[in-house]
């Protein structure tokens, strides 16, 4: 049943966000620490387990696949509700800080990617 897939996805997300909130409280920050990441790991592990032992029914899988396919439309809606006005009307300091942070981070990607690949080929 489709709802099994949707429910499994919901369970993973709720569990991940719950653990993320607990982690945040434990280390004393007012934020969720990796909740969505933990939820994703849980879903990957559960779906890998079930492929060998209790294989997910294809119809159950469509319950997850639908929300995965809704990702882009949801992101478009997310873009349409951003506070773009605040981003670009608070003056040059905010704009330059944002641009500089993005530029520096983009520049780091090839450096770190090479580093990671290098250590891998050493093995």
């Amino acid at each position: 049943m489709v709802i099994y897939g949707v429910a499994l996805l919901s369970f993973c997300m709720l569990f991940g966000v719950f653990v993320g909130d607990l982690l945040g409280t434990l280390i004393g920050v007012q934020a969720n620490v990796g909740g969505v990441g933990i939820a994703m790991l849980l879903l990957i592990i559960l779906s890998n387990l079930s492929s060998s032992k209790l294989k997910l029914n294809p119809i159950t899988e469509t319950g997850i696949g639908f929300w995965s396919a809704m990702y882009i439309p949801i992101v478009v809606a997310m873009a349409a509700r951003q506070n773009v006005v605040a981003a670009f009307s608070s003056g040059w300091l905010a704009i330059i800080a944002g641009i500089a942070a993005v530029a520096a981070s983009f520049a780091m990607i090839p450096i770190l990617a090479r580093f990671g690949k290098g250590t891998r080929s050493d093995h």
Partner: peptide, 11 residues
Amino acid sequence: FRDFAIVATAF
């Protein structure tokens, strides 16, 4: 919904 869809992409 954003987080729900992100988790779903992990499948």
